[in-house]
């Protein structure tokens, strides 16, 4: 009888940016009471093959909420159902279930942060470290009429990577986009950044 007294959390939704997935909900507000929450999930496999099984979230089996980082729970590119309930002492509310199952392939991918520098004639790029799921497609070219654009896949961010050996007197431009193989998608390109190499241009 006491179970129904505690209201269930409402307005569940998932905010997902760059493969970081945050489940949020409206808190249950009770005067002078500390309400906790418990989050569970079910992948499409469970819903098809073992529908009675719900799995406790890695980080939010008992959390102060009203949000939960479910990134380590959502580890496959299939729809996931998520549910939350409130806990007050020994009371637990009914489960609130996310209206639409969440698939990580809907995550928002932002253009990566990018720093370019040179060491002598060597063009070096360092991309934002967005985590192990991310690779980067880097496009670079020499700024001159009908130049050819080159592309290179960089396996991870956070370390300086050699891009090109430049010729003196030329201007080189670079842009990059994030790639997430696990969902088969990529971000928009970053802004273009250019760097110039001193020295006389080579005789043609």
């Amino acid at each position: 009888d006491g179970v129904a007294a505690l209201p269930a959390p409402q307005n569940l939704s998932v905010h997902s940016i760059n493969m970081k997935h945050l489940l949020i909900w409206s808190p249950v507000v009770l005067p002078e009471e500390k309400v906790y929450y418990s989050v569970e999930y079910q992948g499409e496999y469970e819903s098809l093959y073992t529908s009675d099984i719900w799995i406790p979230s890695k980080w939010c089996s008992r959390t102060e909420g009203p949000e939960c980082d479910v990134t380590d729970d959502i580890t496959a590119t299939v729809p996931y159902s998520l549910r939350v309930r409130a806990i007050l002492g020994s009371q637990t509310s009914a489960w609130s279930i996310l209206e639409q199952p969440f698939n990580r392939n809907s995550t928002i991918l932002t253009p990566p942060g990018m720093e370019i520098s040179k060491d002598g004639f060597h063009l070096v790029i360092e991309l934002e470290d967005l985590g192990p799921q991310f690779q980067f497609l880097v496009a670079y070219w020499r700024r001159e009429p009908d130049t050819k654009e080159h592309a290179k896949v960089v396996r991870r961010g956070g370390i300086p990577v050699h891009l090109e050996t430049m010729e003196p007197g030329a201007l080189y431009c670079v842009k990059a986009q994030a790639l997430v193989k696990a969902i088969g998608r990529n971000s928009a390109f970053s802004q273009t950044k250019c760097v110039e190499v001193q020295g006389e241009a080579l005789p043609l």
């Binding site: 060597h122 300086p160 990577v161 050996t165």
Partner: peptide, 16 residues
């Protein structure tokens, strides 16, 4: 300055 490069074949020439 340090930079790295991912290489598949066995030779790499750092020029300039």
């Amino acid at each position: 300055r340090m930079w790295s490069q991912c290489v598949t074949n066995h030779t790499l020439v750092l020029s300039w």
